[in-house]
Amino acid sequence: MTYHSRLPLLALLAVTMLIALPAQADNFLQDLNGDGQVSFVSFGDSITLGDGDGIRPKQHVSRVPDGHSGTGYSARLEAWLGIPAMNGGRGGEYLTAGGLYRLPGLVLSSNADIVGFMEGTNDVFGHANLGNAERDYQRAINIILALGRQPLMLTLPQTCCNRSRGRPGLSYLSNIVRTLAAANQVPLADVERAWGSVCSGAGECDLLCIPEGLHPNTAGYDLIAQTAAAALLGIDVFAPDGAAKLEQALGWAPGTVLIRSNQTE
């Protein structure tokens, strides 16, 4: 994707101007802790960590090599939005079995104003009891808010190919995340919906390592980060002009945003 070579100064200027404009009700890039900067930390599993990042679309990957992690979506947010972003992903982590216990310490050890939360994929493939998932997602939101930070909830990217059996479980969890984001009035980056605008069904998907079908590739991480960036900027990326607004906000060429509007998941 050529936009990675965009002059960073232009992007930074664009974002600075956006932040300097009269406050938009939905712009979540706020310095909540008063340290003079807006910063971000991501919490999640290997998909947050960035496993599979660096693998190109259509490159044959039956299993993502151990230790093959790129920078993931948080580093892209840092580059595009000009805000420090820490990667708090941990490979193999379950939401319903231990992941939540790591969250308070991670948040407190960072000075992040915004916490991106995306976890649950391992719970689906590990046959965890998803009956506790709603309460655990709610706990996560409450923990982040009580610690004075802004949660950004992300739904889960879909799978395909060798991992297509996880699709119903992932959708189940993503629906919970959507419902809770609305009930809690916190921002939502609907990654699953964005995913579905590019890849439909359980067949091959250019956003995933193929035929492994679980971890995003470089394009997949681009899409996750684009969805998150739009949410943080208060842009409805699924609106007919949403992609254009995001491109304009970040100084990108038309057509850079992967998400297609007016698509149902």
Binding site: R135, Q138, R139, N142, L145, A146, A183, N184, Q185
Partner: peptide
């Protein structure tokens, strides 16, 4: 309650208008 969503408070004289939105711990 850490695992509970926010609560709205309504009063019987205006039951359709929430007067408070309460989050955990805040």
């Amino acid at each position: 309650s850490l695992d509970s969503a926010p609560f709205n408070l309504t009063i019987s004289d205006r039951p359709d208008q929430p007067v408070l939105f309460a989050r955990f711990g805040l």
